[in-house]
Design a protein around this nucleic acid. Structure first.
Lengths: 338, 338
DNA sequence: TTGTAAGCGTTATCAA
DNA sequence: TTGATAACGCTTACAA
């Protein structure tokens, strides 16, 4: 019962009294097979619950699997969900199936997941790198013609196609927006500083401050990698003797956390601009001003890069930067409390 | 360049001057290999960028792949992201890798994704069924010993393990809560009625009404499968001559949409209870009362069922119901406007 | 219209 | 400690 071996083509063939090759023909709808034989084979396949072994097929054919592997850092972050949706919509018409795994934001998780995909001979590989991962070992795969595209964050120690948001410019514009509304004590709440997106957005923050002649105050730079951490950061930022009058939250979790923190403090006088939009942004009070990323477009761009490579594009690695968009809703336009 | 063949064990072996079997021993850290041979093999592997072909290995070993396949309807829904996270946390310690694909809520997408997983000989299969899918064809796989667990929604035409939320009872308690606060015109905004979860939650809604002696008014039952559809539904519900004084939103998208709709109408006098919690629920005004699902627990329970099967549990199919929890925050306690 | 032989990349078995 | 041979399930090339 438990050792019930799975039916193979030979099993089906024996059942019907033909050869495996004939079953193969029926399965692949290829070559000439008499209607009667075909019917008998189909019947036996159904009766035995035959499922072709794609591993064996792919091995023989030498063809790659019709699967695209995607490595993301976190299944729970809707940003990556939307990115994945964008990819899927683009590769599906081509008959490719997207399979997603999570690295849990660790280099080891990422390495082992990539290995899993490579060992299964995916048609192409999409990776959102986790901090500190090294992509140098992938050079052989790339040389062997495997399309590899990095998303959201660039590869480390490897030149390859890459799609990212306009992080620096987007952050700059968001912070400049706060400055334009009179703020000079603007806090930055972001991920761990090892992350590429955090570094870029932090640079944009510095660019905006510099342009306005505002010195960087390290005391206003906080880390909030999840909701509660960001909420706690806000409490600290506002408890200072010289508190922040505005906050730039550098990702969706940070923005959510800052909103939570401010609400718990019953503070409605602190300006806020978030990076990445939230579904409920417009109903918050005040409504949340954000630098919106086009996450679906990021996925789509990556998928298109990938498919161009599959179609034989051998040009050098490209980096696509997807623009962001400032959405003004209220929270970013409040003046500083004097 | 483009046809660069991938290095095989034989390639590595030839390079070093040994046999494929020796390389195999090194790769699998099995059997006796001299330290020197091992070093030379490892060096050659690295130089050639050798990646073992798992398809070939699995085929030979006859072993199942160390992969668990998960089919979800929608990558963009954070509920499924959290469920996936719960599964991953439970199967990873066992050395299993979770691979996720999206059916886009279509029976065909689900069928083809399941086929993809079966053809790749996953160790186990996890499925969130889409509406109208038929799982009868999976009976042979189940008989062959493949653990199959359904999540969030039960299988159709197949008896199998299943993990669901206490949908009916949860919805009943949410609606009863509104009734306890004086409401009698309570609207229901949910998914398409073909969906299991929608049907169950609707039953819970009816149960609560019946218990209170309130007749069901079909005019108060609306469909809102995404944010905007739910927002539009609210507008209709409140525009009636005999409008709803409270709304029960039967899933997270519907709840978000209802909140959006109410905010756009500037209506703060309509009571609301949502099914499934939202990250920003506590900061809404009024804060959102919800029937919270434990999505991570659903994933974990499914993973545990699955692993028990892998460990040889042959008992009959079980259905696990994960309890929900009413979280009172304000929106559900508002009295009806007279 | 169907069958035979060989081989894809790996590992089990047994021998050296 | 290492190698030769066969086999996993399937498809290609060729023959019947």
């Amino acid at each position: 019962m438990s050792k019930a071996r799975r039916a193979t083509m030979s099993d089906v063939a024996r059942e019907v009294g033909v050869t495996a090759k004939t079953v193969s023909r029926v399965v692949n709808g290829e070559g000439p097979v008499s209607a009667e034989t075909r019917a008998r084979v189909l019947e036996a396949m159904d009766r035995l619950g035959f499922q072709p072994n794609l591993m064996a097929r792919n091995m023989r054919v030498g063809a790659r699997d019709s699967t695209v592997g995607l490595v993301i850092p976190d299944m729970g972050n809707p940003f990556f969900g939307t990115v994945a949706g964008g990819i899927e919509g683009a590769v599906r018409p081509r008959g490719l199936t997207l399979l997603v795994g999570s690295s849990e934001e660790t280099a080891e998780g990422e390495r082992s997941l990539i290995s899993t995909f490579l060992a299964r001979r995916v048609t192409a590989l999409l990776v959102v790198p986790s901090a500190d991962s090294d992509h140098h070992p992938l050079r052989a795969e790339r040389a062997a013609g495997l399309p590899i595209v990095f998303l959201d964050r660039p590869p480390n120690r490897l030149t390859a196609d890459c799609v990212v948001s306009a992080n620096r410019e987007g952050a700059r514009s968001g912070v400049a927006h706060l400055i334009a509304h009179g703020h000079r004590r603007i806090a930055f709440v972001g991920d761990l500083s090892t992350l590429y997106t955090r570094r870029e957005r932090f640079q944009g923050y510095r660019d905006a401050l510099a342009k306005a002649g505002i010195p960087l105050d390290r005391a206003l730079v906080e880390t909030g990698h999840d909701h509660e951490a960001a909420a706690a950061a806000v409490v600290r930022l506002l408890a200072r003797k010289d508190p922040a009058t505005a906050v730039f939250a550098a990702n969706n979790f940070a923005a959510t956390g800052v909103v939570l923190g401010l609400a718990r403090l019953r503070r409605r006088d602190v300006a806020l601009v978030g990076f990445d939009d939230l579904p409920l942004a417009e109903v918050l009070e005040p409504a949340l001003t954000v630098v919106a990323q086009d996450s679906a477009a990021i996925g789509k761009a990556a998928a298109e890069l990938l498919m161009a490579r599959l179609d034989g594009d051998r040009s050098r690695a490209r980096t696509v930067e997807v623009p962001t968009r400032l959405i003004v809703r209220g929270s970013g336009e409040m003046p500083p409390t004097v």
